[in-house]
C-alpha cells in the first residue's frame, strides 16, 4: 500500500497540471467544433414572408454540405488558395531556409540585428500589415506605383491578375521571419561535434549546409510547411482589408471569406458552419497528406 501513495500524489499533480489545458481545449476547441458540426446539419424554416410568423429549426441532413459544394464561388475560393499555396508556400519556405542558413553560417556578421529585422514583420498584426501594403499598392498614394510609372511601367498591383500575388507578397513579408526563426532554433540544436567532424573531413560551408544542416532541420521544415499550408487555407484578413481598394476581391475570394460572408453577411449560419467544416477537412487532408508525402508522419504531432 505504501508503494501506491507517491503514485497517487504524482497522478494528482499530473491531473492538476493537465486540467487547465484540458478545460480550455475542450471548451474553446472541441466544443465549438461539435457545435459547428451540429449547426451544419440543421436549417431554418420560417412562416410568413417576413418571417414574422416564427421560425423552426429542422434537421437538414447533408443538404447544407451539398449547397456549399454546389456554390461555384466557394469552390473558386478553394482553387484560388490552392494556387496561392502551391506558389507562395515553397517560395516562403525556401526564403526562410536561405536566411536561416545565412544567419547561422560561421562567417555571418550582424546576426542579432538581421535576425531581429527579419523577424520584425511577424510582430505586425496581419490587419495592420495589409493596411501598410494597401497604401503601397494603391495608385495615387503608392510611391512604388509612382516610381514604376516614372520608369514607364504601368503596373496595377490590385488588378484581377496581379492581386493574388500582391497578397502573397504581404503574407511572405509577414511570415518568412517567423519560419526562419523556427529553422534557426533547430539549427542551434545541431551538436557542434558534427560540424567539427565535417571540417576535419574537409567539408566546405556549402557541403556543411546541404549535407548536414538541411537533413537535420528536416523536421522543422516539415513543421513550418504544414503551418504554412494551414495558414494559406485560412487566408482571411488580407483580402478583407484590401477589399475596399479594389473591385477584384469578391465575396468568396477565399473559403474563409466566403464562410464569413455567409455567416455574417447573409446570416446563413448553418451553411457557414458546413463550409467551415469542409474547410477544416480540406486543411486536415492537405496537412496529413503532406506529412505522409515526406514520410515523417507523427513527428510533427497533431495540430
Amino acid at each position: 500500500m505504501a508503494r501506491t501513495r507517491p503514485h497517487t500524489a504524482r497522478n494528482r499533480a499530473a491531473v492538476g497540471f493537465l486540467l487547465p489545458f484540458c478545460v480550455l481545449f475542450l471548451t474553446t476547441f472541441v466544443a465549438p467544433i461539435c457545435y459547428a458540426v451540429h449547426q451544419s446539419l440543421f436549417r431554418v424554416e420560417r412562416k410568413g414572408a417576413l418571417g414574422l410568423g416564427g421560425e423552426t429549426e429542422v434537421f437538414a441532413g447533408l443538404s447544407n454540405y451539398t449547397h456549399a459544394l454546389e456554390d461555384s464561388q466557394f469552390l473558386a475560393g478553394f482553387g484560388r488558395v490552392l494556387l496561392f499555396g502551391v506558389v507562395q508556400v515553397p517560395v516562403m519556405i525556401l526564403l526562410a531556409t536561405v536566411l536561416a542558413l545565412l544567419l547561422e553560417a560561421a562567417s555571418a556578421r550582424g546576426v542579432v540585428f538581421f535576425r531581429t529585422a527579419f523577424f520584425l514583420p511577424y510582430g505586425v498584426p496581419g490587419v495592420i500589415a495589409s493596411i501598410l501594403w494597401g497604401f503601397l499598392y494603391v495608385p495615387g498614394i503608392s510611391p512604388i506605383v509612382e516610381m514604376l510609372d516614372g520608369a514607364g511601367l504601368d503596373v496595377d498591383f490590385l488588378s484581377d491578375g496581379t492581386l493574388l500575388w500582391s497578397i502573397a507578397n504581404i503574407v511572405t513579408w509577414e511570415f518568412t521571419g517567423y519560419n526562419m526563426l523556427i529553422l534557426i532554433s533547430q539549427l542551434k540544436a545541431v551538436p557542434d561535434e558534427l560540424y567539427e567532424a565535417a571540417r576535419i573531413d574537409g567539408a566546405n560551408a556549402w557541403q556543411v549546409a546541404v549535407r548536414i544542416k538541411l537533413p537535420l532541420i528536416r523536421p522543422a521544415l516539415v513543421l513550418t510547411t504544414v503551418f504554412s499550408i494551414i495558414g494559406t487555407l485560412q487566408l482571411f484578413s488580407e483580402p478583407l482589408v484590401l477589399k475596399p481598394l479594389t473591385g477584384n476581391i469578391d465575396t468568396g475570394y477565399t473559403p474563409n471569406v466566403h464562410a464569413y460572408n455567409e455567416a455574417f453577411g447573409a446570416n446563413n449560419y448553418h451553411v457557414a458552419a458546413a463550409e467551415a467544416v469542409l474547410l477544416a477537412v480540406v486543411a486536415c487532408v492537405l496537412s496529413f497528406g503532406f506529412m505522409r508525402l515526406v514520410g515523417r508522419r507523427g513527428k510533427v504531432g497533431d495540430e
Binding site: 495589409s130 498614394i141 482589408v241 475596399p244 481598394l245
Partner: peptide, 25 residues
C-alpha cells in the same frame, strides 16, 4: 454610406474586423 477618406476607411475597416471578432466570441 461610407464617409471619409480612404485612409480612414481602411483603418475603420480593420477596427471593425477586430470588433466583429469580439462580438462573435
Amino acid at each position: 454610406n461610407p464617409v471619409g477618406t480612404s485612409r480612414r476607411s481602411l483603418l475603420a475597416a480593420s477596427a471593425a474586423t477586430a470588433a466583429t471578432g469580439l462580438a462573435v466570441a
